[in-house]
């Protein structure tokens, strides 16, 4: 996994609550057996005026001129500013894959759905929870100022605004450690292989039916 330490980037809005993962990446694109290439179809139904199909050349599709990510001023954005319960619905990891593939490195929102939140960390994408009032303030500043960029410092756990003021955020210690160092958590878990085997031995005695194979 790629590491996340510090990132400065242009901010773009996704100004609605309860953005679900179907909206982030519609189902027809889940037929891919790869982890990459989802960026052109991020927010597909909002971004384009036609219905998208897998494998299509998106550069020739009609863009929705009213969708912010299509605005000139948000081109190159890498920080997504969103509303509450972002990423609700399906567990599809294709949602963070699409955000990452598009170029986003962080999503800021007042709250996230659990599975999406978790999936982000596995892909070097940092979801940041800030108070609703703080997020509202960021929306106002972003709309008011073209080229509005934020600096995200994971080590210090703060979002730094253009005026230099810093907003602190919380992040789990383990997730922070993995992100900062780009660690593969499977490798870390396998360091506890003996503990897993010991658990299995004990459990097999207590509840052997749990280990019966389905044939």
């Amino acid at each position: 996994m790629k590491a996340f330490t510090q990132h400065q980037g242009l901010v773009a809005p996704m100004d609605r609550a309860n953005v679900d993962t179907d909206l982030i990446i519609p189902k027809q694109f889940l037929k891919s057996i790869k982890r990459t290439g989802f960026g052109p179809n991020l927010f597909d139904e909002l971004r384009y005026l036609d219905e998208g199909a897998p494998g299509q050349d998106c550069s020739k599709r009609p863009l929705n001129p009213e969708f912010p990510l299509n605005f000139e001023r948000y081109q190159g954005a890498s920080v997504l500013l969103a509303r509450k319960n972002f990423g609700c619905g399906s567990s599809r990891e294709h949602a963070p894959w699409a955000l990452d593939d598009y170029g986003f490195r962080a999503v800021i929102a007042p709250s996230f759905a659990d599975i999406f939140f978790n999936n982000c960390f596995k892909n070097g994408l940092l979801p940041i929870v800030l108070d609703e009032a703080v997020v509202e303030q960021l929306f106002e500043e972003m709309y008011a100022q073209e080229g509005y960029a934020l600096t995200i410092d994971l080590e210090k756990q703060q979002v730094v605004k253009p005026d230099g003021s810093a907003i602190p955020f919380e992040v789990d210690e383990f997730r922070k450690h993995c992100l900062l160092n780009g660690l593969d958590d499977i490798g870390l878990t396998l360091e506890d292989a003996d503990a897993i085997r010991a658990y299995e031995k004990k459990r097999r005695e207590q509840a052997p039916w749990l280990f019966d194979a389905v044939k």
Binding site: R35, G89, S90, S91, R92, E93, P96, I115, N118, N119, K122, N123, D185, I186, T189, L190, D192, A193, I196, E200
Partner: peptide, 30 residues
């Protein structure tokens, strides 16, 4: 699959996971 919660009806702890976690469970059972 997020609708894995269905199996909780049996008195089980069941939930959906993302693909990275699918790989993690495949490799570590945890």
């Amino acid at each position: 699959d997020s609708h894995t919660s269905t199996h909780g009806a049996l008195g089980a702890l069941a939930h959906g996971i993302g693909t990275s976690e699918v790989e993690h469970v495949m490799a570590t059972q945890c």
